[in-house]
Write a protein that binds this DNA or RNA. Structure first.
Length: 221
DNA sequence: GTCTGATCATGA
DNA sequence: TCATGATCAGAC
């Protein structure tokens, strides 16, 4: 089953709303997809299922999932109280040439300026099949959120530009944090140290803290 | 290797 | 209990 991409924001949100209440087993059945018994070896399975169900267009490009609409799709696992169970991955980080980047040209800004959040009731006691799709909502950062995200991004990007990459831990950043994002500890990329020398280091990514996404969900529900 | 989709597993 | 650091799968 192939889906045509949505032509407008309203068509997209309408589609997403029609999925609310379905279990993952019900949605997977529409695509004749087997449901894994756990996500240990298929961590992205839920996100990919929703991509199929909503007709994303970006594929593997580093672009918002709905390229033409400039909208990013994010599934977010929540408990029955609507509290996020995980942080949210935003983008990988280019460790070279960051000094030329601006906030507006960054992947973080491009992806977060408009997001379709699809909550998934995903408490651990529920099998993957029984996890349930919640009410989706479109979000853009408000003034305060945007300013804070921009500041986090700038501070962290500055540290990378100064060669302080190895000093960055997940404790930096108010809403955005930087954490490893790679296949494993052996997957290394090139970065720059304080002396301007090329070093091999773990790939990193920007993530939204669960404490931040929790506030988004509270604003909408 | 680089990107996407994320969750796992463990120590604090 | 919770966040950090580590890890898994697939496309290209």
């Amino acid at each position: 089953m192939m889906l045509t991409p949505p032509n407008s924001e309203s068509e997209l949100i309408e589609r997403a709303q029609q999925l609310a209440g379905l279990t993952l087993a019900q949605l997977a059945a529409r695509f004749n997809l087997p449901v894994p018994t756990d996500l240990r070896r298929e961590k992205g399975w839920i996100g990919q299922l929703l991509e199929q169900a909503l007709g994303t267009t970006a594929g593997t490009l580093p672009k918002p999932d709905f390229m033409e609409l400039g909208i990013e799709l994010k599934t977010i696992p929540i408990d029955r109280c609507g509290k996020p169970l995980e942080s949210t991955f935003v983008s990988t980080i280019h460790l070279l040439g960051v000094s030329r980047l601006t906030w507006e040209s960054s992947y973080v800004y491009q992806k977060l300026k408009r997001v379709l959040w699809v909550p998934i009731l995903a408490e651990k006691h529920l099998s993957i099949a029984d996890r349930q799709i919640g009410t989706p909502f479109l979000w853009s950062p408000d003034t305060e959120q945007m300013a804070a995200l921009r500041q986090d991004w700038q501070e962290l990007t500055d540290m990378i530009a100064l060669g302080e990459l190895e000093k960055i831990t997940a404790r930096h950043g108010r809403y955005l944090q930087i954490r490893p994002k790679g296949a494993n500890a052996k997957a290394l990329v090139t970065g720059i140290n304080e002396n301007g020398e090329r070093i091999k280091t773990l790939p990193r990514g920007f993530y939204l803290r669960a404490l931040f996404t929790k506030t988004l969900l509270q604003d909408y529900f």
